[in-house]
Design a protein around this nucleic acid. Structure first.
Lengths: 346, 346
DNA sequence: GCCTAGACCGAAAGCGCTTTCGGAATCAAT
DNA sequence: ATTGATTCCGAAAGCGCTTTCGGTCTAGGC
């Protein structure tokens, strides 16, 4: 069975390839009748234009790339598939492709971006979890490849992004905890090269200040976004002479680790020590105890992000596409009113 | 700044385009000296062949598609990003692309596959979570598009797949539970149109038989792979006149729901009632109590799967690429010896 | 010194589509 | 009936690369 291409349809219909192509693409200079005829025959033979050829001819890649964050070791990566799903949804309406690309290591991340933007295989890029000063962003701008970042870097004035105001969220969370009577609030942050880590730390400190609390560096640590790393950090902090009665964590995954650390210190999280995470991960419902968290509205963010990117590809000004959402505190069972430590009793 | 293409390099070097191309692609009929010269200049100008053009010319797509499973609502989807990561890793060694495609609904899944295999944009496909009789597989075969399935359908003789022997795993798990003294073992399965659901059910029933236990349909249910659905199912089963003292679940996500159901029935999972899940999800460590599970060796399966697919694309016989791995029981805290039900005491 | 092999490279034909350009046919208007 | 404007379509030139084919040139072998 022969490949059905433009040529096939053309001979089948007894007209020229060019006409078939224009008919299919709804050019105005094709009569309604032949247009119909062409489309009918095309449908009959289940014709699908060879995308590669079309791309070469038109020069538009009809594809968007998602740059996978490099360290996907952690538990918290449901967000990747969520995002992908949303992006794919948005893309499929146009019939565009979604490419998932990975940098083998953090070193080669910039390289990957460079290649991506010069090889012409995509017409746009979405990256997530930017660093404070992110070379990827610089490269994308330099090569003027349309892109959108999920999150923000320090200098976020001149590109498109979609982010959640985690600074505000953490400020509020501190307020919440302070309202519960907590004075010693610990903080488990993420590595500070990530801008989101900085922003959450900032929120934490601002919250402290607003509530007349002192920033105590012995109560905070910055570690990888894994349960184990944060458990270790929390254990250490718990051994301080004046340990915290509550923890704020940069991610839910970390918060879960902290929960474990508290339990293994013989204390009861949610009662002896409060902990609040960030992300709103679903499985926080099932931790012990269920995790109170700052939930980002990430349900359909993939779609929105991609729609924004598409708008930019269509000629929109990136600066017009900057969305800041806000997180909401979802209280489960891991936070509670301050109560004096058991150890003080003995 | 002009695009650096073959033409540019050719004029730059004073030789023909064809020669440049062949030099770059290590054709044997190019002298070492010009080959070097060409490569040097290419590197200097940071030349990257336009992939689209190359694909058109060679006819090979240099890309592989991953077909996203349609209902990614559930918690258990870290496996998607894990898989993707592995696949991407394997692909990037060849410089190939990873396409992620989604069917908007289950109805259009076959359509999507059809288009994918005729549009020529990919040279291979990986699909996961096959149905018992999976139309996607039929279509892929019909269009002889190389593919590999993560899992197996009923008729798995003539294609490539990578699966874990969950039948065996569930048989063993029943044995484990029986050894612990449990006689009434409930089962929360997944929708039976999925072949893995059937296989796990089979394992469960075989295990029952091997241990001289009766299959009791009032103790089993098949529900969606979400925590809520399985919690509801477990609650119902718990109300039976002769409720189970242990549950086996087709997925960890379901097991977590069962944990919740047990607790909300006022019982203690792991003590009053055992529950064992399947998947080996990391966050099972943090449930209440930590979830005992049948862990699949999914760490690098993405890589292996993709390597297998690549081998097939290179001309390998699909039948030679069928891998069956085995799961291992990782005991955490949600299983324990049989103990008479509290309710019996009263 | 002539002939045959290689070795090496240029020319050119695609890959399957899009898109411009101009020509033929149709139509309305003078 | 002639002209001018439209409508509709065919021809052909790419898009940027690969790959075949054949030709030139040099190095051996006699």
């Amino acid at each position: 069975m022969r490949r059905v291409g433009l040529k096939f349809l053309a001979t089948e219909l007894g007209i020229s390839e060019g006409t078939v192509s224009r008919a299919l693409n709804d050019y105005p200079d094709i009569s309604q009748s032949t247009r119909d005829r062409v489309k009918e025959v095309a449908a009959k033979f289940n014709y699908k234009a060879n995308q590669t050829a079309r791309r070469l001819a038109t020069g538009v890649a009809e594809a968007v790339a998602y740059l996978m964050p490099p360290n996907t070791k952690s538990i918290s990566e449901p967000f990747v598939s969520q995002l992908l799903e949303g992006i794919g949804e948005s893309l499929s309406q146009r019939g565009w492709d979604l490419l998932v690309v990975q940098a083998s290591s953090e070193k080669t991340e910039a390289d990957t971006v460079e290649k991506l933007s010069t090889s012409g295989r995509v017409s746009g890029v979405v990256i997530s979890r930017p660093y404070k000063n992110d070379r990827r962003i610089e490269l994308l701008k330099k090569n003027n490849m349309p892109f959108i970042v999920h999150g923000r870097s320090v200098d976020s004035d001149d590109y498109a992004w979609f982010d959640v105001d985690s600074t505000q969220a953490f400020k509020d969370a501190v307020g919440h905890l302070a309202g519960l009577g907590h004075q010693q609030i610990g903080f488990i942050g993420a590595p500070l090269e990530y801008n989101f880590a900085q922003m959450r730390l900032d929120g934490y400190r601002q919250g402290l200040m607003e509530n007349g609390l002192q920033y105590d560096p012995t109560l905070v640590d910055h570690v990888d976004m894994t349960d184990d790393a944060s458990a270790a950090a929390a254990s250490a902090i718990l051994k301080a002479q004046n340990p915290p009665t509550a923890f704020l964590c940069a991610t839910d995954t970390q918060a879960i680790g902290v929960l474990a650390a508290i339990r293994s210190a013989g204390l009861i999280p949610g009662q002896d020590i409060s902990v609040i995470g960030y992300d709103g991960l679903d499985f926080g419902k099932h931790t012990n105890p269920p995790l109170t968290t700052l939930a980002q509205p990430q349900s359909h963010s993939g779609r929105e992000i991609c729609d924004m990117l598409l708008a930019i590809i269509d000629g929109g000004n990136p600066v017009d596409y900057q969305e800041l959402r806000s997180a909401t505190l979802v209280r489960r069972m891991s936070d509670g009113p301050f109560r004096p430590m058991k150890t003080i009793i003995s």
